[in-house]
């Protein structure tokens, strides 16, 4: 089986956001594999272990993403690919899709997995957009996956309801929390990962021009949410506190 995982590095979820010179600052920020992509990696490794084949993890991003690719290799992926997206103007989800579609053009794939959304931009566009570009089916936000021959049965989380969906390969699926428990890289895994192939590609290598991937949207401003004023902590007898809160929510906050 040819299994691919699309991965992105993101800020650690513990990180606070700071803005410098009108941009989100990554100064001193700790990066991780996007948590939803970790579910995709875990599922890909399990699929390979049950069905043979190999797992290739692909990221589009900056050179530094090599670190997260090595982590994915240490978890058990077989090969890694980093596609450098430097110098693309107004980089957006269209850009990523153009680059990935070009990369997959001459590949043979049975299943492509990814997270259903990233922690940073949080659009959830890449899976469905790429499926459309490749002309294959997709199912997003899956929490369960079973493969029987060429038939895949997945459970999709649709706002809390579970849809049981059947689809044939090749397919793109995007992972939702609950799909599995991603493993931690083991020490032997980390040692092995150092020797696994990690290919770095430039847009040129894909016969792409920076202009081909130029975004269709542009970011005009980033800003932090306004600081909240200190709240009111109530005091006194518990019954009185609760009655006061009920009153405040109805008359002051007017939300009930």
């Amino acid at each position: 089986m040819n299994i691919y995982v699309i991965m992105k590095r993101t800020f650690d979820t513990e990180e606070k956001i700071a803005i410098e010179n009108g941009e989100i600052s990554d100064d001193g920020v700790n990066f991780i594999i996007n948590p939803y992509d970790e579910y995709a990696i875990e599922e890909a490794i399990k699929l390979r272990d049950d069905n043979d084949g190999e797992v290739t993890v692909v990221t589009v991003g900056e050179e530094e993403a090599e670190k997260e690719l090595r982590t994915a290799l240490a978890m058990g992926c077989d090969k890694a690919v980093l596609i450098n997206n430097e110098d693309v103007e107004d980089y957006d989800q269209f850009s990523t899709t153009v680059i990935l579609a070009k990369y997959f053009e001459d590949k043979e794939y049975d299943i492509i997995l990814g997270g259903n959304v990233t922690m940073d931009n949080g659009t959830g566009q890449i899976g469905p957009r790429l499926a459309e570009k490749l002309g294959i089916a997709h199912v997003s936000t899956i929490v369960d996956l079973k493969l029987k021959g060429e038939k895949l049965t997945v459970e999709r989380d649709a706002e809390g309801d579970a849809e049981v969906i059947e689809v044939s390969l090749p397919v793109i699926v995007t992972a939702q929390q609950g799909l599995n428990e991603p493993r931690y890289p083991s020490l032997p895994g980390i040692m092995k990962a150092k020797k696994k192939p990690l290919e770095v590609l430039e847009l040129d290598d894909l016969d792409l021009d920076e202009d081909d991937a130029e975004g269709l949207t542009e970011s005009v401003e980033v800003f932090l949410p306004p600081e909240k004023a200190a709240g009111k902590v109530l005091e006194g007898d518990m019954e009185d506190q609760v009655q006061e809160l009920v009153k405040l929510l109805r008359t002051e906050a007017k939300v009930i």
Partner: peptide
Amino acid sequence: LTFTRPIYAGKAFEKKRFKEG
């Protein structure tokens, strides 16, 4: 026409425009 959307799960916001089409 400008659109505001949360990024980093609401830890920050961005304003976006689209180009054409």
